[in-house]
Simulated assay, not measured.
Amino acid sequence: MAGLIKAWVHGWALSRGVGVPVAEPDGYRLDVGRPGHRVRYVLADTGSVASRARSLTEPGTWLKVSGSREEVAKTVPPEWEVGPPEYLMSAPIALRPVMAAPEPYRAELVGDGVVTDVVVRAPDGSRAATGRVAIAGGTAVIDQVVTEPEHQRRGLGRFVMRRLDEVAVAAGAERAVLVATGQGRALYLTLGWTVATEITAAHLPEEN
């Protein structure tokens, strides 16, 4: 579990263009520095959630906790907003037959070998689906997989994941990790991914 969390944290930092994660006794700190998301603490379990939530008071502070939503929600003070359940998932990297983009879509790769985007375009050139992979320490970290609403249920999510897998194989990665929403979890389970742990996000909102 510790290895999966470490890989995910470092790959997420690469994907989002933030600084190198700083190891803490209970996990990692990432200085994100963006409106509404100033700093993020990724905690390996729920043991330090209470003390962290009491000591962290700056709006825009986030916790990402390996633990259930129920446990986190009953632990943090009421000023913290607790998000819906998410899931840290993993899968072995496997070389599979190349998959063509479903008609009438076309796909392109954009990246530098460390962070690569798969962009699927509709016939009019608009983005229909996207996904990103960042290679961190031999692990492929999948991020920002999105299919636009008007293009859903056409196999684009499955196609994007296959192309990201191809990029990971070419980079020499042996395992892939991601954090999925409840909706995404259903797709990834059909693709052979397994759930390692529930992830719960909580944050102190910034006022508009």
Results as ranks from 00 to 15, higher is better:
residue 2 A to C: 09
residue 6 K to R: 15
residue 7 A to I: 10
residue 9 V to W: 12
residue 14 L to I: 04
residue 14 L to G: 07
residue 16 R to I: 02
residue 16 R to F: 00
residue 17 G to L: 02
residue 17 G to C: 00
residue 23 A to Y: 05
residue 24 E to L: 13
residue 25 P to R: 09
residue 25 P to F: 11
residue 27 G to I: 04
residue 29 R to T: 01
residue 29 R to Q: 02
residue 31 D to T: 12
residue 32 V to Q: 03
residue 34 R to E: 03
residue 34 R to V: 01
residue 35 P to H: 01
residue 37 H to R: 11
residue 40 R to K: 10
residue 45 D to N: 06
residue 49 V to F: 07
residue 50 A to C: 09
residue 51 S to H: 02
residue 51 S to T: 14
residue 53 A to S: 11
residue 55 S to P: 08
residue 55 S to A: 15
residue 56 L to P: 05
residue 59 P to R: 11
residue 61 T to G: 00
residue 63 L to E: 05
residue 65 V to K: 08
residue 67 G to K: 08
residue 69 R to C: 09
residue 69 R to H: 12
residue 70 E to T: 10
residue 72 V to S: 04
residue 73 A to P: 04
residue 74 K to W: 07
residue 77 P to M: 02
residue 77 P to F: 09
residue 81 E to H: 05
residue 81 E to S: 08
residue 84 P to R: 09
residue 85 P to T: 07
residue 87 Y to P: 01
residue 89 M to A: 13
residue 92 P to D: 14
residue 93 I to N: 11
residue 95 L to I: 09
residue 96 R to H: 14
residue 96 R to N: 12
residue 96 R to W: 15
residue 100 A to G: 14
residue 103 E to K: 14
residue 105 Y to P: 10
residue 106 R to Q: 11
residue 107 A to R: 04
residue 107 A to F: 01
residue 109 L to Y: 08
residue 110 V to S: 08
residue 110 V to P: 01
residue 111 G to T: 00
residue 112 D to Q: 03
residue 112 D to F: 07
residue 113 G to M: 02
residue 117 D to C: 03
residue 117 D to K: 03
residue 118 V to H: 04
residue 119 V to E: 05
residue 120 V to Y: 04
residue 122 A to F: 06
residue 126 S to Y: 02
residue 127 R to N: 02
residue 128 A to L: 09
residue 130 T to G: 04
residue 131 G to D: 06
residue 131 G to M: 01
residue 132 R to M: 04
residue 133 V to L: 09
residue 134 A to G: 05
residue 135 I to Y: 05
residue 136 A to N: 07
residue 138 G to R: 08
residue 140 A to E: 02
residue 147 T to L: 05
residue 149 P to M: 08
residue 149 P to S: 00
residue 150 E to A: 11
residue 157 G to D: 01
residue 157 G to T: 06
residue 158 R to V: 13
residue 160 V to T: 01
residue 163 R to E: 00
residue 163 R to P: 02
residue 168 A to D: 00
residue 169 V to S: 00
residue 170 A to N: 08
residue 175 R to I: 14
residue 176 A to Q: 10
residue 176 A to H: 03
residue 179 V to Q: 14
residue 179 V to S: 02
residue 186 A to T: 12
residue 187 L to H: 12
residue 187 L to M: 13
residue 189 L to H: 10
residue 189 L to P: 07
residue 191 L to T: 10
residue 191 L to M: 14
residue 198 E to R: 09
residue 198 E to G: 10
residue 202 A to K: 03
residue 202 A to H: 09
residue 206 E to L: 10
